[in-house]
Design a protein around this nucleic acid. Sequence first.
DNA 1: TCAGGATACATGCATTTGCATCTATCTCGA
DNA 2: TCGAGATAGATGCAAATGCATGTATCCTGA
Lengths: 165, 165
Amino acid sequence: MTAPTADRPVSHSPSAPSVRETAEAWESLFRTQVTVMRRLQTDPAFRELGIKEYDVLFTLSGCPGGGLRLNELNNHVLLAQSSLSRLVDRLERKGLVTRRAAPEDGRGTLIALTEAGLETQRRIGRGHVREIARLFGTALDGGELAELTRLTAKLRQHVEESHPL
Amino acid sequence: MTAPTADRPVSHSPSAPSVRETAEAWESLFRTQVTVMRRLQTDPAFRELGIKEYDVLFTLSGCPGGGLRLNELNNHVLLAQSSLSRLVDRLERKGLVTRRAAPEDGRGTLIALTEAGLETQRRIGRGHVREIARLFGTALDGGELAELTRLTAKLRQHVEESHPL
DNA sequence: TCAGGATACATGCATTTGCATCTATCTCGA
DNA sequence: TCGAGATAGATGCAAATGCATGTATCCTGA
């Protein structure tokens, strides 16, 4: 993902990291995501419903209130706004989500899970988490896994706050 | 990405993690990748060449020998084999890579960077690493960044070894 | 050695995606 | 209050993608 560049010397100290160290971390994170996702995608469960479609159902299942606005949903998915709009079209045609006008903003659309959508998400999700656990196996122990979660969450929060879209 | 499931109690001990902890770690890693990638994609540098096309040039730049086989290249990218084949078509038409028969396997294709391809990768790459560093900012210190690199690399290596495609 | 199956890559075709643009609604300052 | 600009989402259309399949080459056991 990155190329070597002139840079100050590598420092493994707990101070400001070099550009190179930063790029290496991103490269490693990114490749790991590719490696894991490639294998998750082959799960036969995702022949019924693509993994992106599942991801939208999963995100919606996390906010059982009134659903999510399309643009909020869009922040969780790596798709252009128009592509997400059509992905929601497909889910709507399958009866897994509903669209309704946002109560406080006439421009907005509120997307919410239907009963069938929730049931589908839960059914696929059960097998999906098992598949994740099977893939990860014993690669990382409990402490390492917790640290991975903490570091990625910290990075994500920082990027969201200091570089809004 | 995942749904809650019945599971043994959460353990933050350094022993075998629960299914839930594993799914949480994957979810956090995945969302972070989405958050960062979404922002990297908006770099105007990727109007000249899509980020996936750049990624292929970058991967090729790491093996300056004779290039890479199409199927090796495919392991680094989240694309179906046929899609990668056509992505390489596009790069070839732009004069950034060459295709030639693999020396030891008549079925294989060896993809290699041209001079122009290497130059393009380096030019885009220089700005790209700076953009990564700008995004990451001071989110993680040097030690945390090194730990993130170590954990993701360890996970990736484990998955590649124990779950070949 | 050679037939049957596996593997590497390319290609036809339908689906999905993104860009540009459109409409509708909202916001804010004069 | 009104008008200019901003924002949310939908849509036309070209490009990119994936699935199924095709062709060529390789491998293996009888």
